[in-house]
Structures are given as C-alpha cells and as structure tokens.
Computed example of a mutant assay.
Amino acid sequence: MSETRQLALITGGSSGLGLELAKQFAQNGYDIALSGSSDRIFEAADTIRELGVEAYPHKADASTYDGVESFWNFTKDLGRQIDAAVLNVGIGIGGAFIDNDLEDELKLISINVNGTVHMAKRVVKHMVPNGRGKILIVSSISATQPTPYETVYGPSKAFGFMFAESLREELRETGVTVTALLPGATNTSFHSNAGMDSSEIGSSDKNDKEVVARQGFEALMNDEDHVVGGDEKTKQQVEDNKTTPEPVKAARHAKQAKLQN
C-alpha cells in the first residue's frame, strides 16, 4: 500500500512548523521522509504514522554538508520517486550583532542558506527528469524587511525567498513547481530557541502553527508562487512593507526584537 502513495521529503520535521507541515501531507495521503537533529525525529515519525501513512525518520546535523547529504541519500535509498519536498529547516539568533558569537551566526548561514541550496540541488535534479514535483521553501516575513537584533537571520530568509522565486521561473516548463512560504511569528519554540523570550516579539501573541502549515500546503498544491502564513494582520504587514521605507521598517523591528533587560 505504501508504494502506491506519494512521498514527501521534509527537512526540520521534528517539531514546530515542520511537523505541522508533515501532518498536512500525511492527512492528504503522502508518506513522509523527515529529518531532524535530535531523537525527537523518531517521536515525530510515530505521530505521522498515527495518521495512517508511513514515516521514514532520519537524524542528521543540517549545519554540515555531510548531514544534509546523509538525509538525501537516506531518502533516495528508499527507491521511490519524491513527489514533494519541503525545505523547512532553519534557526534564528536574537541579540545584537556585536554581542553574538561569529560561530553561531556562521552556523545559521550554513543551515538557512547552504543547507537550502544543497537540498534543493538534489531535489531538483531528481524531480526534473521525472517531469513533475512540488517544492516548498520556508522563508519568513522577515524576508520583506530589515531585521535588526536578528541581523543575520532576516537576510538568510530574504535569500530563501528570492532563491525560491528565481528557481520557480527557471523550472517553469519542467513540470516542477516552487512555492515560498513566508510565516509571521508563529506559536512554535522558534523565538525561545533563538533566545528572544524577553523581546516584544518573543512574548507577543503568535499565529497558529496548524493554520500556517495548512496555508503553506494549500499554496503549494495550488501552484502559488508564495504565500504569507498567518492572520490578516500578518498579511497586511507584508503589504505595508512594500511601500514603507527601509529605515522605518528597521526601526520598527528593532523595537520589537531588542532583548529587554
């Protein structure tokens, strides 16, 4: 039975938005190959199996070339066509650039930028010869504005957004589609993991992760070039960002993201 279902590859599927996206695919009849950096990935796989499909968990360090490659080889060795890929893995770092460790910021770039390009390369080369496939790249509304006090994170997500838009156009005639998901602040552990609990944005009300995941899944299935994940206020912020001067957006985000003593 499993061999007759479609297969989705999902990076960063242990928890949060990645797990919610995996659930969306599972509820729509996809088997799931999912990766994560901790043993929680095996618990996530059990959650997916409870939805009546098969899950293939793989533990790997997404900040390294070998880690990304190992998940790709693990999925490829299943011997099945990959019908959809969600490039979701990503981390954030809060705090002032002058205070943060360079090693941590380079790790962020390795995961958010290098890892996205690496896995996209493998997925595209697999899908294009098959003449079909769907790729969802998870960016952020941070891609539409400067992000002081998340000074490396925002640009990494801007890269992801423009990478998705560029790749989409290149693949237009191949049968492979690319969609970018730009979530607003979402009720996952993201801001806590980024050390931002004491910031205004860290302690604010957030979008529901199940809603954001559903919006991303539906946009992918409907071949939309991108979708803003969240409520109407979140979507309006992105619209406003199109006409708001960069210094104004930077000052607004600095107030929201600066850690409080």
Rank of each mutant, 00 (worst) to 15 (best):
E3L: 15
Q6W: 10
Q6A: 09
L7N: 01
T11F: 00
G13M: 11
E20N: 11
E20M: 09
L21D: 04
A22D: 00
F25W: 02
S37Q: 11
I41H: 02
F42M: 05
F42T: 03
A45R: 00
D46E: 14
D46Q: 12
I48K: 08
E50F: 11
V53G: 06
E54K: 15
E54T: 13
Y56A: 03
Y56N: 09
P57I: 10
P57S: 06
H58K: 04
A60V: 13
A60S: 14
A60N: 11
A60Y: 14
D61C: 06
D61A: 06
A62S: 15
A62K: 12
T64F: 08
Y65F: 15
D66K: 14
D66V: 11
F71E: 06
F74S: 09
G79P: 03
R80K: 05
R80Y: 03
A84C: 04
V86K: 04
V86H: 04
I91S: 09
I91V: 12
G92L: 07
I93L: 14
I93D: 13
D101L: 15
D101V: 10
L102F: 13
L102C: 12
L102S: 11
E103H: 08
I109H: 02
S110M: 02
N114F: 12
N114G: 12
T116Q: 01
T116Y: 03
V117Y: 11
V117Q: 07
H118M: 13
K121E: 13
R122C: 12
R122K: 15
V123I: 08
K125C: 10
K125L: 13
H126Y: 07
P129Q: 05
N130L: 15
G131V: 03
G131D: 06
L136N: 02
I137N: 02
S140K: 06
S142E: 14
A143I: 04
T144R: 07
Q145G: 05
Q145M: 14
Q145E: 08
P146V: 04
T151Y: 10
V152W: 04
Y153K: 01
A158S: 13
A158D: 10
F159W: 08
F159L: 05
F161C: 02
M162C: 12
M162L: 15
M162Y: 15
F163T: 03
E165M: 15
E170D: 09
L171G: 01
R172I: 14
T177P: 00
T179I: 05
T179P: 05
A180S: 07
L181D: 06
T186M: 00
T186N: 04
T188N: 01
T188D: 03
S189W: 08
S189C: 06
H191Y: 15
S192L: 09
S192Y: 11
A194E: 01
A194N: 01
I201P: 09
G202A: 03
G202F: 06
S203D: 09
S203E: 09
S204P: 00
D208Q: 06
E210S: 12
E210Y: 06
V212E: 08
A213W: 00
Q215W: 02
G216L: 02
L220D: 03
D225W: 14
V227C: 05
G229F: 07
G230N: 02
K233L: 14
Q236V: 10
E239G: 00
E239Q: 13
D240T: 07
K242A: 13
V248E: 14
K249Y: 07
H253D: 12
A254K: 06
K255M: 11
K255S: 12
K258D: 02
L259A: 05
N261V: 12
N261P: 15
